[in-house]
């Protein structure tokens, strides 16, 4: 028989352990963020943001990487949003639970789990090679679109499901068709939730590296069309850091990435809070 410990004592020990775990997580987050920001922010200058990199990124700025990030992200969002939101509407409004919806949900959940390097392989063989799009903004953006599709499907579906069912009844009872009900009542009501999903998708695009290297390449030049190869901020940072090209510029780029992710997260949270506040 083991030693009997007073339940009150275990309660106290457990409480301490659990609180310290939570504090550890917060501490880790702040350490990482503050470390990167404090080393990086001093190197961010106006020039750094507005000049094209030169000498492999050793000097010059990161303008082409900013443009590259923007371009692949826009392609991804433009492609994934209608597909994701459309799928969510199909699942909530156009069908009842059935084998078909199960398969669609299973596919989306499976997509969410696939590692980004596998997306990279797929994007490389399908978009770059098979569809002959080459290493380009288009290939990179389409690969990212596939990656963020499950996020947009899930958040949109949740958002549409929180629209009170009576809104649909009212709209139908006033002679509204399904299409009218969707465009005039459901979409406006679910918009903040849908936007949250899109913002999270943007965050994922900005942060992604592995899938983009294999599909958009890592060209330093300013992209000129959808078919130009491009380098995103995350890829630029990876190359600067791993090849030891310029630690200063690496820190500065990382700091910009962190700031972007912070802003994106704050935006998503503001939207979520708005939805919650509205429901009260």
């Amino acid at each position: 028989m083991g030693i009997r410990v007073n339940p009150r004592t275990t309660q106290k020990i457990a409480k301490v352990v659990i609180w310290s775990a939570a504090i550890l997580v917060l501490l880790l987050l702040f350490t990482i963020i503050i470390y990167i920001l404090s080393k990086g922010i001093p190197h961010i200058t106006w020039q750094f943001l507005t000049e094209i990199p030169s000498d492999m990124g050793k000097s010059g700025g990161i303008l082409s990487a900013i443009v590259g990030t923007l371009a692949v992200t826009i392609v991804a969002i433009v492609v994934a949003t209608p597909l994701g939101v459309g799928t969510a509407f199909y699942l909530t409004e156009y069908t009842r639970e059935s084998g078909v919806t199960k398969i669609i949900r299973f596919s989306a959940e499976s997509l969410a789990g696939i590692p980004s390097i596998v997306y990279g392989l797929f994007g490389f063989i399908f978009f770059v090679t098979y569809l002959k799009l080459g290493w380009s903004i288009l290939s990179g953006g389409l690969t990212l679109a596939v990656m963020i599709l499950p996020t947009i499907i899930r958040t949109s579906e949740e958002a549409i499901r929180t629209v009170p069912p009576m809104y649909r009844e009212v709209s139908f009872s006033l002679g509204g068709t399904k299409w009218q009900t969707m465009t005039k009542v459901l979409i406006p009501s679910a918009l903040p939730g849908i936007a949250t999903g899109i913002i999270l998708g943007i965050g994922r695009c900005v942060a992604e590296t592995a899938a983009i290297i294999l599909t958009a390449g890592s060209a330093l030049q300013m992209p000129t069309s959808l078919f130009s190869p491009a380098r995103t901020l995350a890829v630029h940072f990876y190359i600067l850091a791993s090849e030891g090209i310029s630690l200063e510029n690496a820190y500065a780029t990382a700091a910009i990435l962190i700031i972007l992710i912070l802003l994106i997260n704050i935006g998503a949270n503001l939207l979520v809070n708005r939805v919650v506040a509205k429901r009260r």
Binding site: P164, M166, Y167, V170, S173, G176
Partner: peptide, 20 residues
Amino acid sequence: ISELRRKVSMVFEVPTPLPM
């Protein structure tokens, strides 16, 4: 059906204004 529901219209038990 749209025409029918415009001709024969309904008020529900729970007052439900649309969010506009």
